[in-house]
Design a protein around this nucleic acid. Structure first.
Lengths: 214, 214
DNA sequence: GTTGAAATTAGTACGAA
DNA sequence: TTCGTACTAATTTCAAC
C-alpha cells in the first residue's frame, strides 16, 4: 500500500440516504469494531482477530472501503499537545435560504472541526479548536458573525472532554438493547422516571429547505 | 482499548494541563497533518511526503505515539451504513457533586459517542447514535434520566453533519491567524459586526468543583 | 539525522473445497 | 464465498556512515 483514496461522502448527510450496496453481516461488524479501535492493524492480524482467512479479510476490507462504510482512517491527536487547548461550541442561528452560503463559508474555516445541523432553538452547532480563549472570541466575532448567513451565535466553552469513542456501532449494544423493536408505539415504557426531567426540543418553524448543498 | 484514550488524558481534561514531554516542531506537525488524513499510510510513504528519511520518520512516529500526541488510530465508519442512522445531542444538567457518578454511568453507555463538560446553561453535552428515533427517546427517558446525577436533559436531533474534520491542527491556520498575538486586550478589533449578534455564555453559578474524577 | 542492505511482512493471484 | 498456498512487492528493522 502506498497511498490511500480520499473519502467519498461528499455531500451525503444523514437524512434521506438509502442503504444500498453491501449488506453487512456479523463479520463485517467485527471488522469495523477492530478497525475503529486500531486503524493501523495489518490485514493479517485483522483476519486473525476476526477469525477468517487472510484472503477473506482482504476482500471484505476492500469491500468496506469501496462501499464507503469505512470513510477513512485517521489519527486522533491530542489537541492540547498540538497547541490547540481551547475547545468551544458555537450554536448558530442561520438566516433562511442562506444555508448554501453558510456551508461554503464553514468549509473555509479550518479551525472548525465539526458542524452539525440540529433541531431545537438553534440551527447549527459547530465545534472549534483554538490556541487560546481570545482566539475563540476573535473567530466568533470577526469571522463567524461576519457571515451574512449567520443571524446569531451563542458560544460555550468545553471544560473537559469526558469521553470520545472511536465510533459507535450497533454491535456495541447489549443483546437486550439491540433487540429493541421500534414497535408501533414509540412511547416510553414506564420506568419510574420523574416527569418533567427531560425535554425534547423540536425544530424551529420554517426550516424545511435547509438541505441545500454548498 | 475500550474507554477513552489509552493515552494520558485520564483525568487531565483540557484545563490545567501542562505541556510536558516532546516539543513539537514543524516536521512533527506535518507528520500529524498527513496521519490525520490518512491513518494507514506506511511510514515510508509518510517520510517521503514529509521530506525526511525513513529512519527519522520511524523515530518521530514512535515518539509521537509514545508521548501520547497521537492518541490512537481509528477508522471512520459511516453510521448510516452501519445501522445507526439517528444522531442526537443531549444537553444534561448534572446535580452538584455527583459528577463522579455521572461519568461512571456514561462509561457504561456504549451508544454515547462523545461527552463534553461545558460552560453555559447546561453542564454537559453528549452525542448519541441510535438506530431509530424511538431509541433516542428510550435512552434519554429510560437510562439517562434514571441516573440520579442527572437533574434535567434537553435533546435535539442532528439533521445533517455538514463537516467533520479528522483533526484540527495549528498548522491548518493561515499565517495571519496563526500569528495572532493574544496581546493585553482580548477585546475584538472593530470589524463592523452588528452588535448583539453574538453572545457568550458563561458557566452557571456554583460549578467550581466539577473536576472530580470517576 | 541519513543511507543502504537484510529480514520480515504485506498484498496478490491462483486453484480447491 | 471462503480458504490455503505460493509468489512478488513493499515495509520495517538494524547496521554503519
Amino acid at each position: 500500500m502506498t497511498e490511500m483514496s480520499g473519502g467519498s461522502s461528499r455531500g451525503g448527510g444523514l437524512v434521506g440516504r438509502i442503504g444500498i450496496g453491501l449488506q453487512l453481516d456479523a463479520i463485517h461488524m467485527k471488522i469495523l469494531q477492530v478497525l475503529r479501535e486500531n486503524g493501523r492493524i495489518s490485514v493479517a492480524a485483522l483476519a486473525e482477530r476476526v477469525g477468517i482467512s487472510r484472503a477473506s479479510a482482504y476482500t471484505r476490507f476492500e469491500a468496506l472501503r469501496a462501499d464507503g462504510v469505512i470513510k477513512r482512517f485517521t489519527a486522533e491527536v491530542d489537541h492540547v499537545r498540538a497547541g490547540l487547548g481551547i475547545t468551544a461550541l458555537v450554536f448558530v442561528t442561520v438566516r433562511q435560504q442562506m444555508w448554501k452560503q453558510f456551508r461554503a463559508q464553514l468549509a473555509q474555516m479550518p479551525e472548525v472541526e465539526y458542524c452539525a445541523i440540529t433541531t431545537g432553538q438553534h440551527d447549527a452547532m459547530i465545534q472549534i479548536r483554538m490556541a487560546d480563549v481570545a482566539g475563540v472570541h476573535a473567530l466568533v466575532t470577526e469571522r463567524l458573525a461576519g457571515i451574512p448567513a449567520v443571524k446569531a451565535t451563542e458560544t460555550v466553552f468545553i471544560l473537559d472532554e469526558v469521553l470520545k469513542r472511536p465510533y459507535v456501532l450497533p454491535s456495541d449494544r447489549t443483546p437486550r438493547q439491540q433487540s429493541r423493536r421500534p414497535s408501533a408505539e414509540p412511547t416510553t415504557p414506564d420506568s419510574g422516571v420523574p416527569l418533567g426531567k427531560m425535554r425534547f426540543v423540536g425544530a424551529a418553524e420554517g426550516r424545511a429547505e435547509m438541505r441545500g448543498e454548498p
